[in-house]
């Protein structure tokens, strides 16, 4: 496929009179990683929520493989959401079933698309736990018994098990300590390259953006104020706010 996987045109979401995000347009090609950065309240998560269908946008178009997801019927959108899309929440508790074992968590998407062979489901789950560096011996433990970093990796495994095309991540490294963050980022980078995923990653951590993203969008007050290649945006910021953002990072 040569065209973009996802085309967003003039997307707007309002909360009453307030702007959630407005006039957001971009294209995302297969295998590309798009970072969205900005301070708290800049509309990053709102934008991601609209793209994933968690929130209903007020205006604009979201074209996935040329089809407008806003015009799709809900069943079709939900099928997309559990086959071709994946959504990684900031808090793994939002994305995992805490009362269900790690294997069950990874297997849920498989069973949702019709897998009915216990042995196969378990083998796949075990394989995926290995790929996200969780010991296969913990397949029957509940996520409660996992550390924060492991929970986040489990959430990623659960999302990627059906081989999605488009992954949306909302602050996947938030709340993790730096060494765990580094390993998670390594893992993500490897999976993204290996599976050729298109990724939209929302973060306020510029280091994460630098490491993972090919392109960057900077948001402020619900608008995109700057967009471009990651290195270009971070090394030669044009907008005043981006300059402030880049210079705010403590250089160790």
């Amino acid at each position: 496929m040569s065209g973009p996987l996802l085309e967003v045109v003039g997307l707007e979401k309002r909360y009453g009179a307030r702007i959630g995000c407005t006039e957001v347009s971009f294209d995302l090609y297969p295998g590309e990683v798009l970072g969205i950065v900005g301070e708290s309240g800049s509309g990053k998560s709102t934008l991601l929520g609209c793209l994933a269908g968690h929130l209903s946008a007020d205006a604009g178009h979201i074209l996935y493989k040329g089809r407008d997801t806003r015009a799709m019927a809900e069943p079709e959108r939900r099928v997309l959401a559990r086959t071709e899309w994946a959504f990684v929440h900031q808090n793994p508790r939002d994305g995992l079933r805490m009362g269900v074992s790690a294997g069950g968590n990874v297997g849920e998407r498989l069973m949702a698309v019709g897998a009915r062979h216990y042995g196969d489901i378990r083998a796949t789950a075990s394989d995926w736990l290995g790929r996200v560096e969780i010991d296969a011996g913990r397949i029957d433990d509940r996520p409660r018994a996992f550390s924060g970093g492991m929970q986040q990796r489990l959430q990623i495994a659960r999302n990627l098990v059906t081989g999605p095309r488009l992954v949306m991540m909302d602050e996947p490294t938030g709340g993790l300590d730096v060494s765990v963050q580094a390993r998670l980022l390594d893992l993500l980078r490897a999976l993204v390259r290996e599976m050729g995923l298109a990724v939209i990653i929302v973060t306020h951590d510029l280091a994460v953006a630098r490491l993972l993203a090919d392109r960057l969008m900077v948001m402020k007050d619900g608008r995109v104020i700057e967009a471009g290649l990651t290195d270009q945006v971070l090394d030669d910021p044009q907008a005043a706010y981006t300059q402030l953002l880049v210079s705010s990072v403590l250089q160790v």
């Binding site: 269900v100 074992s101 294997g103 069950g104 297997g107 998407r109 069973m111 949702a112 216990y118 378990r122």
Partner: peptide
């Protein structure tokens, strides 16, 4: 309504796992 019954099998999966 949407026949999304994968979750029912998660319960059975948990049974077998445990």
């Amino acid at each position: 309504a949407l026949e999304e019954y994968g979750l029912m099998h998660v319960k059975l999966y948990e049974d077998i796992a445990r």
